[in-house]
């Protein structure tokens, strides 16, 4: 059992050392910094399915966050060099228990799996498919629910870069890209 006088002493010491907020507050400073690093919302895009493409969705959409809860989410681009989204693509998941689920990208390339739709038995595998083109991910996903946590630009030793369907210069121009419909910004 912790003696009350020791607890008080610890709090006084914590306050004196400037650590009080970290000890007394439930806020995770590392998480908070990561969220702040995302920057402000684009004022031309309403908060919803079309916002923040390419960012690590689960920073704000995890269980317990005020935003709508997802289990897996991300953004897929048409190719490895442009910011053109891959629209209306299937994102195929198969988990280690053999369960399968299909999500779909919207007009900015975002996709998200809602709570209760699919909770994978880890690890799981992902394949992107649009029309006759598909691209399986080269390795399984063991714990990360945001694509962009591992897939960010620029590509380098620590990341393969953004998620994309193809880098084939012959195929890229044949991949359809469409504008958003007025109703797509709604949840």
């Amino acid at each position: 059992m912790v003696r009350p006088e020791l607890t008080v002493a610890a709090l006084v010491l914590a306050g004196a050392s400037g650590c009080a907020p970290a000890i007394l507050s439930p806020v995770d400073p590392e998480h908070q910094q990561a969220v702040e690093a995302l920057g402000a919302e684009d004022p031309s895009v309403p908060i919803g399915p079309l916002h923040r493409p390419g960012q690590p969705c689960m920073l704000c959409h995890d269980v317990g966050d005020p935003a709508k809860t997802f289990t897996i989410a991300g953004t897929v681009f048409r190719d490895n060099v442009s910011t053109a989204p891959l629209t209306d693509a299937d994102i195929l998941f198969v988990d280690s228990a053999g369960n399968r689920f299909v999500s779909h990208t919207n007009c900015v390339g975002n996709f998200f799996v809602g709570l209760g739709q699919f909770e994978p038995v880890w690890p799981f595998w992902v394949t992107i498919r649009q029309g006759a083109n598909d691209s399986p991910m080269g390795s399984p996903v063991h714990r990360e629910r945001s694509c962009a946590a591992c897939h960010f630009n620029p590509a380098g030793p620590r990341t393969a870069g953004q998620v994309y369907l193809t880098s084939d210069d012959f195929v890229v121009p044949m991949i359809p890209v469409r504008a958003c419909r007025p109703d797509e910004g709604n949840i």
Partner: peptide, 13 residues
């Protein structure tokens, strides 16, 4: 390969 690369100009792909 398919993971963290050692060379500064490496890539998981």
């Amino acid at each position: 390969g398919r993971g963290l690369r050692l060379a500064p100009d490496g890539n998981p792909l």
